[in-house]
């Protein structure tokens, strides 16, 4: 799937596209993840193979404890697989050091977490500008871009509010603004609507859909079928394995 960034209104000047003719954005090959807690071993992922092309919108569904978050952390380079190979844009991430991984997270990936993960001491725009601080963007430009991103999520009037002074839906919109401010090619969202009421959830999903239409590759984790319905493709995960989709319409194996 090819992508056009021109649709993007706010940051049309800056974009990271992977070469359309090149390798898939995400390529998992027999990825396993084993957590060790004392003597106890938990196999959170038991051999996941998955390919996601540029510009795809993929929903990952599965029951609680099936390994969805574990998968997202590996996709986002926040954690490393215990076995198997993960190639991000053709590059085997196990060969990259911590500094390089930090750069990749900073420039290519935008995260939206279920618990928002905003810094409580910083105002909305200071939270949004954080990735730009680490990208080495000059201060004036950071503020401009953070304000533009907040404008996109409809929070121009809450720029100087701290997270504690915002509703859950507004906080998640701030987090979404933070995910898109660097104009990343890949957006990873782990149950972004899990803590929101239906109208706030619709706002956030609308934003994600917009990003997809702007050419971003999206991986959305959820266990709500109607949330997954917005995606082009749904992968189901169960007990750490990808399972075939039997009926795309009626949700998961619960």
């Amino acid at each position: 799937m090819t992508a056009e960034h021109a649709v993007l209104p706010a940051e049309g000047t800056r974009s990271h596209t992977w070469d359309a003719a090149g390798p898939p954005v995400i390529e998992l090959d027999g990825v396993t993840k084993t957590y060790r807690t004392g003597t106890l071993e938990v196999d959170a992922l038991r051999g996941v193979s998955l390919t996601i092309d540029e510009g795809e919108y993929v929903a990952v569904m599965g029951p609680s404890g099936s390994g969805k978050s574990t998968l997202m952390h590996i996709l986002g380079c926040l954690d490393v697989p215990s076995g198997g190979v993960y190639r991000l844009a053709g590059e085997d991430v196990s060969t990259l050091d911590e500094t390089r991984l930090a750069e990749i997270r900073n420039q290519r990936i935008g995260f939206v977490f279920q618990q928002f993960n905003l810094l409580p001491t910083l105002t909305a725009w200071r939270n949004v500008e954080l990735p730009l601080v680490y990208a080495g963007v000059e201060r004036h430009e950071r503020r401009e871009r953070a304000l533009a991103a907040l404008d996109r999520v409809g929070l121009s009037d809450r720029v100087e509010h701290r997270p504690g002074e915002l509703s859950g839906g507004q906080q998640q919109r701030v987090a979404t603004a933070r995910a898109l401010v660097t104009d990343p090619a890949l957006i990873l969202a782990d149950e972004p609507t899990g803590n929101l009421d239906s109208s706030s959830a619709a706002d956030v999903l609308g934003l994600i859909d917009e990003l997809h239409r702007a050419g971003r590759t999206i991986v959305l984790i959820t266990h709500e079928p109607d949330v997954a319905a917005a995606a082009q493709r749904t992968e189901r995960i169960r007990d750490g394995r990808i399972v075939p989709v039997t009926d795309p319409g009626t949700g998961g194996h619960r």
């Binding site: 926040l78 911590e98 993960n117 810094l119």
Partner: peptide, 16 residues
């Protein structure tokens, strides 16, 4: 710890 984790997720290198 959470703040450090978040800053790292957003691209802070160990050096920073």
């Amino acid at each position: 710890v959470r703040e450090i984790g978040l800053r790292k997720a957003l691209g802070a290198t160990p050096r920073v």
